[in-house]
């Protein structure tokens, strides 16, 4: 707590009505369609949703890493420390990437360059953003980073190449690179999906520890609700390129308002309940080229009413900080 010198409630990142569309031969695909959320200082926000719901495109838009063409950010604003990241130049963005906002990836096997030692790769980032440092000083810091991510025998390992590390160890190196410049925001795009369950737990513990130590905010993308429960303060549930529900993790797990969130939670096995067969949400994600006119979830929703098919629901605040986009939110909760 004591290192939280900045205001806890201040919004570090605020995304307003972000829209990223893909222009393909088959037509325009609205991958991210009016997404709004915010990450506060020192907070962990989880974005959950199934494959193809637009969560990765959302964070890549924040980093301005979507490839244009085919993708294009059509609208909205991304306020990071009160600067709109969509309005600054690519050069300024390069200075922000890695220094203020960092990102770690799903696949630690390919996220490291195979021809350089891990020490070199960590030092490279440090030098990129601190031009005044000497190579020796950067190496010193790189060693410190390896120690911080708890890699055993860092003095020897710093001279190793990525292929000499296991998956979990590589992910630690990736985290070390991401945190080398003490960024304010760390974006983690399914950081543990490619790892064994035991290693997953270790990596998550490490991330939580580092977050506490450095006061970094984390934007965690995952499809694993267990990770959200363990790691996040707040969660945003995405479906069909939109956020359907957002709020405090505890509250959402206790009283989910959106039928999709309820479905997701019901399809998890629970330790305190005897379940014969797990619940599944019927149907599949609608084709992004041909989304339903009304609520995006209406094609799969058990409670779907007439108005759901006709008009998209409003995104409204039900209780303090708990947002939902559902016509029936009042009635069914």
């Amino acid at each position: 707590m004591k290192e939280n010198h900045c205001d806890k409630n201040k919004e570090l990142l605020k995304v307003n009505g972000l829209r990223t569309h893909f222009f393909t031969d088959a037509g325009e695909i609205k991958a991210v369609n009016g997404v709004s959320f915010s990450v506060r200082n020192g907070e962990t926000l989880g974005i959950v949703g199934e494959s193809g719901c637009g969560k990765s495109v959302t964070v890549r838009s924040i980093m301005r890493l979507v490839k244009t063409p085919p993708a294009k950010i059509m609208g909205g604003e991304i306020l990071f420390e009160n600067h709109d990241l969509l309005k600054i130049s690519e050069k300024e963005m390069q200075d922000i990437r890695g220094k203020r906002i960092s990102m770690i990836f799903q696949e630690p096997m390919t996220a490291l360059n195979p021809v350089f030692t891990v020490g070199y790769q960590i030092a490279e980032v440090i030098l990129r953003h601190n031009k005044k440092l000497s190579r020796a000083q950067a190496n010193e810091q790189a060693l410190e980073m390896l120690r911080m991510v708890e890699i055993p025998d860092p003095e020897r390992r710093i001279h190793n190449y990525p292929h000499q590390f296991s998956g979990g160890m590589r992910q630690r190196v990736v985290i070390a690179i991401a945190l080398a410049c003490s960024p304010k925001l760390l974006i983690a795009d399914e950081p543990t999906t490619a790892l064994d369950v035991t290693i997953q737990a270790q990596i998550l513990d490490l991330m939580r520890k580092l977050k506490e130590e450095q006061g970094t905010s984390i934007l965690m993308i995952t499809h694993d609700l267990g990770i959200v429960a363990e790691m996040c303060d707040r969660v945003a549930v995405m479906y069909g390129g939109e956020i359907v529900e957002q709020g405090n993790v505890k509250e959402i797990y206790k009283s989910p308002l959106h039928p999709y969130t309820r479905g997701l939670l019901r399809s998890l096995p629970r330790i305190d309940q005897e379940t014969e067969r797990l619940y599944t949400i019927e149907g599949a994600v609608p084709n992004p080229k041909d989304l339903p006119k009304g609520c995006k979830f209406s094609t799969r929703c058990a409670q779907c009413a007439e108005k759901c098919k006709e008009s998209p629901p409003e995104y409204k605040e039900m209780t303090s900080g708990h947002f939902v986009a559902c016509h029936l939110a009042n009635e069914v909760s």
Binding site: R97, G98, F105, A111, E124, H129
Partner: peptide, 8 residues
């Protein structure tokens, strides 16, 4: 991509 993310 990782290099780009780190500001390259």
């Amino acid at each position: 991509l990782a290099a780009r993310v780190m500001g390259a």
